[in-house]
């Protein structure tokens, strides 16, 4: 596992995608899988920056990533407000244009693109952990 700390700002999303992308590539994932892993990680990180750290200017986002036995694990740790993605309702993808809601779409993509998502909040430690797993195809 490699771990990198990022400032919780949208401008670091590029570096975050590169970090997990390089590890996925070295771990033998194909281009399509790498894109999807990067997209899921971006959506997870964007949510943390937007919701967990809403109104916080100097939040930290710690990302660990590694491949073992054809399985990539990505762990995102933040110290902001707990934000459990499983509590976000699935958006209605059949709704017409005027009814279509964009909220929850990032989390929906995250769930669809990864094999497993686990979230845990430890309020006493002020620590939230989101773990995502994807098996190589």
């Amino acid at each position: 596992m490699q771990t990198v700390q990022f400032a919780a700002k949208f401008e670091y999303l590029d570096e975050i995608r590169e970090f997990v992308g390089n590890i996925a590539r070295a771990g033998g994932f194909n281009d399509k899988e790498i894109y999807n892993i990067q997209l899921a990680t971006d959506e997870a990180a964007s949510n943390i920056i937007e919701h967990a750290y809403e109104g916080v200017g100097d939040g930290l986002l710690e990302i660990s990533c590694g491949v073992q036995g054809g399985v990539i694990t990505i762990i995102l740790v933040d110290h902001g407000e707990p934000f459990d993605p499983s509590e976000v309702p699935t958006p209605d993808l059949k709704a017409d244009l005027s009814e279509r809601k964009i909220g929850g779409l990032g989390i929906f993509l995250m769930r669809k693109l990864m094999d497993e998502i686990h979230y845990s909040a430890e309020p006493k430690k002020n620590r939230n952990t989101l773990k995502m797993i994807k098996r190589r195809g």
Partner: peptide
């Protein structure tokens, strides 16, 4: 090259 849900929005 890339578009996340922020672009979809």
């Amino acid at each position: 090259e890339y578009m996340s849900s922020a672009g979809f929005r």
